[in-house]
């Protein structure tokens, strides 16, 4: 069993995470909120770039890629169905 509290950067392909908080400020925070990374939203890790970073996430029906710098500051809980 994995720890259920995690950041998006820890996610593995296929994981669904429920966002609890965003540890970012300023324009990046606004941008992430605009894209649907809002507390309470469900995010699915879709795939990693060939070089390992960035990672693509499915959020509010769209696929958005984030670098580790940002995804490691988005906290949430593992929400996998299985």
């Amino acid at each position: 069993m994995r720890e259920s509290k995690m950041t998006l950067a820890d996610a593995e392909k296929g994981d669904v995470i429920k966002i609890s908080s965003l540890g970012l400020d300023g324009v990046m925070r606004r941008r992430l909120l605009d894209l649907g990374f809002v507390p309470g939203a469900l995010v699915e890790a879709v795939r990693k770039s060939p070089l390992g970073d960035p990672m693509a996430f499915k959020v509010s029906q769209a696929v958005i890629a984030l670098r580790k710098e940002e995804s490691s500051k988005i906290e949430g809980e593992l929400f996998n169905d299985e």
Partner: peptide, 9 residues
Amino acid sequence: ATSMERNLN
């Protein structure tokens, strides 16, 4: 139409 939630925002 395939991504209504974010678009409605």
